[in-house]
Amino acid sequence: MSPTDSSMWSCVCALVLAFPAHSTAVSGVLSSPANVQLTSTNMNLVLRWDPPAGAPRDLLYTTELKSSVLEFKPGCVNTSALECDLTSLVVSIYGKYTGRVKAQRGAQSSEWVISEDFVLDKQTSIGPPNVSLHSNRANLEVSIKDPVFMKSTMRQIFTSATYNITYWKKEQKKEIKHINGLQQNRVVLHSLDPWTEYCVQVQIVASTAQKPSMPSRVVCASTTGEKEPPWVGAVVAFFVLAGVVTLVVLVVCYWKSFSHFLCPKYAIPDHFKKSLLAPPKSHMYLAMQTSQPVEEFSDQIIVVMCSRSEEDGGPQQTAG
């Protein structure tokens, strides 16, 4: 075979090998999504993924979820988002779940891409607690509220959860102090410097969770003095004294009215006194006062009872 014939056969073979690849690109399968994974915060369940490399903008996605006891059930259908909330398909907070997603464009679709298994109560992330501060002189009272869970409550799932409190002076963040392993949600920070602003941050730690919660937002509040400021006592004393002076002035000005009200000088008329003190003049009353006891009389009564004899059936008399 001549060199010219060899070159011709090489070109023909290259065209034959290239034709199937070209036809597959035209009518073939779409590329699949990448980095498919289940995530959870506060017991929700969300499937997330990345679009295929070089994918067009008009791709749509369909997701499904499978539990350890049920087969795949549809989640989001024909969505353009890169995530799907599957919390409504959760049948048990202690179950194991697997998600999958595929890309679609018209009549074309990619292969399903399956995520790794996800144990909800073990792998869920705990959100940040809600923290508030209340200043009480030279102390700060820290109030903590647990995050709201989509399924059940935090205390039912993480019964042994504790709080780690971090606090520092606002202008001196390098001098950080820690209080760890607290179970109560109200804590008083003692021995703080008066008239100083402190900042507090709280994190939840649960032994059965894979990692601590997200830290709370930083909350700051200022302490006051160990005692009330001097002007507070002066203001209170002024108001008390003003009230006493006002009361004395009112009593002096309206003393006659008060005395007449408390000790009225009205007298009972003489004819009322005579009528009330005079003895009763009723005839019946006078007769009862002068009459003698009435003598009572009684008569003897004999009762005769009749009954029939048992032998002759005649009457039988009995006296009593």
Rank of each mutant, 00 (worst) to 15 (best):
T4D: 15
L15N: 04
V16S: 01
L17C: 13
L17I: 04
A18N: 05
F19V: 15
A21S: 10
S23H: 09
S23T: 11
V26S: 10
S27G: 12
L30E: 07
S32M: 05
V36Q: 05
T39K: 10
T39E: 14
T39V: 15
S40C: 02
L47T: 04
D50V: 04
P51Q: 07
A53Q: 10
D58Q: 05
T63L: 06
K66V: 00
S67T: 13
S68K: 01
P74D: 03
G75I: 01
G75V: 03
V77L: 04
N78A: 00
N78C: 04
T79R: 07
T79I: 15
A81S: 14
A81K: 15
D85F: 07
L86A: 02
L89G: 15
V91H: 14
Y94A: 12
K96D: 11
T98D: 11
G99W: 03
G99A: 09
K102W: 14
R105P: 01
S109R: 09
S110Y: 03
W112M: 03
V113D: 11
V119Q: 14
K122C: 08
Q123P: 09
P129I: 00
A138K: 11
K145S: 09
P147D: 00
M150G: 13
M154W: 03
Q156L: 09
I157H: 08
T159R: 08
A161M: 08
N164F: 03
T166N: 15
Y167E: 11
Y167F: 14
K174D: 10
K174V: 06
K174I: 09
E175F: 05
E175K: 08
H178V: 03
N180R: 08
G181W: 08
G181I: 04
Q183C: 00
Q183P: 01
N185E: 12
N185F: 05
N185P: 05
V187N: 05
H190S: 14
W195M: 12
T196S: 14
V200I: 10
V200W: 08
V202M: 08
I204N: 00
V205F: 10
A206F: 07
A209Q: 09
S213Q: 02
R217M: 12
A221I: 03
W231K: 07
V232M: 10
V232P: 07
A237S: 13
V244W: 08
V244H: 06
V244D: 09
V245S: 07
V249R: 11
L250G: 06
C253V: 15
W255C: 06
S257C: 03
F258E: 02
F258H: 08
C263A: 13
P264A: 01
Y266V: 07
Y266A: 09
D270G: 10
K273G: 05
S282K: 07
H283Y: 12
M284T: 13
Q289S: 11
S291I: 13
I302S: 08
S309Y: 08
D312G: 02
Q316H: 03
